[in-house]
């Protein structure tokens, strides 16, 4: 018995949902960034699963998954830089504290 693309997609959906949960509930910018990475890793799982379609691994799903990995790297690099900058300037990494900067 083999796992088909549907199983990968279901796993991807669960991981994405957990990422959204973290995104809404985390209060630290680092926590939010990690939740976004969890969300972005979900398509990688789904695309790896889609590359399984047919008789063997195909290049299309793999190429898209590679793009998704590059997106994760870009998000982590940019997000970590921003989180660090905000933390240094505001003295806190809590998003609730950052909201108060508006006043």
């Amino acid at each position: 018995m083999t796992a088909g693309p549907g199983a990968y997609a279901a796993l991807s959906g669960v991981v994405f949902a957990l990422g959204v949960f973290g995104l809404v509930t985390r209060s630290s910018t680092w926590g939010v960034l990690m939740a976004i990475v969890v969300m972005l890793s979900a398509p990688v799982i789904a695309l790896v699963g889609f590359s399984q379609g047919g008789t063997g691994p195909t290049a299309t799903g793999g190429a898209l998954a590679l793009f998704a990995v590059f997106a994760i790297v870009a998000v982590v690099a940019t997000g970590a830089g921003l989180a660090l900058l905000v933390q240094r300037r505001a003295g806190s990494s809590d998003v609730d504290d950052l909201m108060e900067l508006e006043d």
């Binding site: 959906g13 994405f16 949902a17 957990l18 789904a46």
Partner: peptide, 8 residues
């Protein structure tokens, strides 16, 4: 999260 996960 559950809503979006189900949709995905």
């Amino acid at each position: 999260g559950a809503g979006l996960g189900v949709l995905v």
